[in-house]
């Protein structure tokens, strides 16, 4: 198996996106360090480093929270989809900020000449059986390793190399990493620093991410799917929004996106060939079915990406019986033409 490497394709929108994220990071860090210094001026180099550890840690936590909120937010409101398109850059920047958090932590030990005590702290095995007193840094280290793996494999080269399925599974580990980060803070700094801001940050961030996923998931509940003679009953053509899709579920598993482009009706797998994105939540743009995640495009007629791209999607046979659109749940080989035209009168 081989995969060709393509350089990152920069465009103006991506540059603006990255500039905004970088400016946000700079403002956050500057504000944190300024307020922290104003409230409690560092008395020695170790205290100054400690403030930097907190600043970069808080920034990385906030960035991770925002990253996990982008997915459900974009599903709830399509206007937020541009935030999704360059989420990978946001993720890599989060890893870099987290790296500086780790670096300042090491710097703190080096400055005090106490680096061996860090190793001793991480290998005090009886502490792993405790709850309060658990070596919280280990939780942070594991989360950091997950972020490293994600950042290292964020390029499309790895997406192709690992296959979208494995790549997606790897990147879903970010949820586990987020849980570890929350516990890293709860069992670490929250145990010694009494400021209410820390529990507030944890409950606010974690609660917001959980609530957004719940709301988005609730809206995506499977629609009741009726089956007639082995075909899925979708409804009259006008029930499918023009240049958009209805998502139906096949009795045995896959979701199918039934798109309508004027009079043309076609059914494609709901999984984009790029990253398994929810194709049915996309729209028809410039005559092509467009994935809401990264804008990958396919012809409605046969599920093929326009030249020079080579991606192909599984299609499903469509028929109109008694004025009702029906879809065959059995997929056709990728790239098989299967769309039909409906009567003008039925719209």
């Amino acid at each position: 198996m081989s995969a060709g490497f393509r350089a990152v394709q920069w465009n103006r929108k991506k540059l603006i996106y990255d500039a905004i994220v970088l400016a946000g990071v700079a403002i956050f860090l500057a504000a944190f360090l300024a307020v922290g210094t104003w409230i409690k001026p560092p008395q020695n180099p170790a205290e100054a480093i400690d403030l930097r550890i907190r600043a970069f840690g808080s920034c990385a936590f906030t960035m991770l929270t925002l990253i996990l909120a982008i997915g459900p937010l974009a599903r709830l409101d399509r206007r937020l989809l541009p935030l999704l398109y360059n989420r990978r850059h946001f993720g890599v920047m989060t890893f870099l900020v987290a790296s500086l958090h780790v670096w300042f932590m090491l710097d703190w030990y080096i400055t005090l000449g106490a680096l061996p005590s860090l190793a001793e702290e991480l290998t005090r095995w009886p502490d792993y059986a405790r709850f309060i007193g658990f070596p919280f840094k280990t939780l942070g280290i594991v989360a950091f390793m997950v972020l490293f793996l994600m950042a290292a494999t964020s390029h499309d080269f790895w997406l192709v190399m690992l296959t979208p399925k494995a790549w997606k599974a790897l990147h879903m580990a970010v949820y586990g990493a987020y849980g570890l980060v929350v516990m890293h803070v709860a069992l670490g700094i929250m145990q010694t620093d009494r400021t209410p801001l820390i529990p507030l940050m944890l409950f606010g961030g974690f609660g917001a991410v959980a609530a957004l996923h719940l709301v988005a998931g609730f809206r995506e509940r499977d629609r009741g799917t009726a089956v007639r003679d082995g075909w899925i009953v979708v409804g009259p053509p006008r029930a499918i929004p023009d240049q958009a899709a209805l998502i139906v579920a096949a009795p045995g598993g896959e979701r199918i996106a039934v798109f309508r482009d004027g009079r043309q009706i076609g059914a494609l797998t709901n999984l984009c060939a790029h990253q398994n994105g929810p194709l049915g939540e996309g729209r028809i743009i410039d005559g092509y079915v467009t994935c809401p995640w990264h804008g990958y495009q396919y012809r409605l007629a046969d599920g093929c990406a326009p030249a020079p791209f080579t991606e192909k999607l599984e299609t499903h046979r469509v028929r109109i019986r008694d004025g009702i659109v029906e879809v065959d749940p059995r997929p056709l080989p990728p790239g098989t033409p299967a769309a039909v035209m409906c009567d003008k009168a039925s719209l």
Binding site: F131, I132, Y175, G176, G179, V182, M183, A186, L187, M190, Q191, P199, L202, F203, F206, G207, A210, H213
Partner: peptide, 21 residues
């Protein structure tokens, strides 16, 4: 899985808050 994970983390934070010295 994810609601169980979310509940476990939430419970962990509440316990860590309640038990802190």
């Amino acid at each position: 899985v994810w609601p169980i994970l979310a509940l476990a983390v939430m419970l962990g934070v509440v316990t860590a808050l309640a038990l802190r010295a």
